[in-house]
Simulated assay, not measured.
Amino acid sequence: MAREGLLVTATAAAWLVVKAETVMEGDSVLLSCRYSVKQYGLSQMCWGRSCGTFWCNGIVAQTDGSGIISKVSDHYRFAGDVLAGEMDLHIPKVTLMDSGLYCCRVDIDGYFNDKKVSYTLSVVKGK
């Protein structure tokens, strides 16, 4: 069973959501990343192993606003409707190598407006 922690920070220009997930090796995990298409319009999104200054670092997948344009591995799957602002990262069989940071970044128009959702994934060795 996954455990989750949450910290949300917001400034006048940018916002960041920080979460922690703990899962057993071999279980699945879903890391959520969503934004309001109604409020912001279709935006580019990326999932990476960390958030960089301007985009994701160690890109796992990215969209152009209308669909997924690249994905590094079939190990990762996606849930949700990209056209509705949903790009949840699903890892169906988590391994110890999946431990670490993950970041979803939504490219919101304007300076320093991007939405960032950062996860620390901890994978516990199975019995």
Rank of each mutant, 00 (worst) to 15 (best):
M97C: 13
M45Q: 11
V123M: 04
T9N: 13
L121M: 09
L83Y: 08
G100H: 06
G126R: 00
S50C: 03
T95N: 03
M87Q: 09
S118W: 02
D64E: 11
S99Q: 05
R77N: 10
C46L: 00
R3S: 15
A61I: 06
R49L: 12
A84L: 15
G52R: 07
C51E: 14
C56T: 08
S28M: 07
S43V: 12
I59Y: 04
K115F: 12
F112W: 10
V124T: 06
K115T: 04
N57C: 05
E4Y: 09
G80Q: 03
M87R: 11
G58Q: 10
V94I: 11
E25R: 03
L31W: 04
E25P: 05
K71Q: 15
V23L: 05
H75Q: 09
C46Q: 00
G41T: 00
W15E: 15
K71H: 11
W55M: 06
L83W: 13
Y119R: 07
D74V: 03
P92E: 08
L30K: 13
N113Y: 06
A20Y: 03
V8Y: 09
A12V: 10
V18G: 05
F112Q: 10
C103E: 02
G85T: 02
S118H: 09
M1Y: 10
W47E: 06
T63P: 05
A61D: 06
W15Q: 15
L6W: 13
A13F: 15
K125M: 12
L30T: 15
G58N: 01
V23S: 07
K125S: 06
Q39D: 14
G65P: 05
V23K: 03
E86C: 06
K115E: 11
L101R: 14
L42M: 09
R105Y: 02
V124W: 02
G58S: 01
T120G: 05
T63C: 01
D88R: 03
W47C: 06
S43W: 01
V82Y: 08
I108Y: 08
L7E: 10
S118C: 12
T22M: 08
D27T: 01
V123I: 02
V72G: 01
D88E: 07
W15F: 06
V17K: 12
G67Y: 08
H90L: 15
G52H: 03
V8D: 13
L30N: 10
S36I: 00
D88G: 06
T53E: 15
Y119W: 01
Q62N: 09
L31T: 00
R105N: 12
A84F: 12
L6H: 01
S66M: 13
D88L: 08
Y102I: 09
S122Q: 08
C104A: 15
L42H: 10
K19P: 03
R34E: 14
C46K: 01
A79H: 05
S66C: 05
K38G: 01
G52F: 12
K127V: 12
M97S: 14
N57I: 00
S70C: 02
T9K: 14
Q39C: 02
C56Y: 00
I68D: 00
M24E: 13
C33I: 01
F112R: 10
V94M: 10
G5N: 10
S66E: 10
D109M: 14
D64N: 11
T9A: 15
D109R: 10
M24H: 08
D107Q: 11
A10D: 12
D114N: 14
M87T: 05
